[in-house]
């Protein structure tokens, strides 16, 4: 599915200063029974967000109205564990377009890029600065500039650049996906397949 184009995103951010957030926390397995990609945002961080009687847990950040925005800022090693793309769908469906962390698990990172969420890897020190800025002002704005590959804390002007390969960058800026690309090279794939050992 093609997705929204991503160029410059300026937004407040939701802080989640926890490390090793795995995809079972992002979306527990019991919510993977759908056969369509719909409504996953309601169950984002389900067991951290709601009690077993479905009442909201007041101390969880998504239930705190002072935090909002299209950017999720999370601790080191975000998205580890299961390959479920549902985790990225839940984050997207909830309204996030960018996740910032000092380290991402591989499959989560790939899944995010495939559906139009930009994972931004920053240094540990810069991540701390972002958390500090949000602590000082829950409405602190961040600017994520994909063409320039920079992330800036607007209030202080502090910024850092981030890496992304040229191909993925081009895709995100234009809202293209890999399937479009592969469809265009089917003949070449067919030629390869004819020589395959299996």
């Amino acid at each position: 599915m093609a997705y929204d184009k991503f160029t410059v995103l300026t937004s407040s951010a939701v802080p989640l200063p926890i490390e090793n957030v795995d995809t079972d926390q992002i979306i527990p397995a019991r919510f993977l029974k759908a056969t369509e990609r719909k409504g996953f945002g309601d169950n984002l961080f389900r067991d951290w967000r709601y009690n077993s009687d479905d009442s909201p847990k007041q101390d969880f950040v998504l239930n705190n109205p002072i935090y909002s925005g299209k950017i999720l800022v999370a601790g080191r090693n975000f998205g580890s564990g299961s390959s479920r793309e549902h985790a990225a769908w839940a984050i997207y469906d909830y309204g996030f377009r960018c996740v910032v962390s000092s380290f991402f698990a591989d499959i989560f990172k790939g899944n995010s890029l495939n559906i139009g969420i930009l994972p931004v890897t920053v240094s540990e020190a810069f991540l701390d600065k972002i958390f500090t800025a949000i602590e000082a002002d829950p409405n602190a704005q961040l600017e994520v500039n994909l063409p320039a590959q920079t992330i800036t804390i607007i209030a202080t002007g502090e910024n850092e650049s981030f890496a992304i390969n040229g191909y993925k960058k081009h895709n995100m800026i234009n809202g293209f996906d890999d399937i479009d690309y592969l469809q265009a090279m089917k003949e070449e794939i067919g030629t390869y397949a004819a020589t395959s050992a299996y």
Binding site: E85, H86, I107, N114, I115, D178, I189
Partner: peptide, 22 residues
């Protein structure tokens, strides 16, 4: 290795996926 659903769609439609070499 494990892949996400978008990649499942890629493999079904083209028998390929796109991966940077680890």
């Amino acid at each position: 290795f494990g892949i996400g659903t978008s990649e499942v769609e890629m493999v079904l439609s083209s028998q390929c996926i796109m991966q940077p070499k680890p």
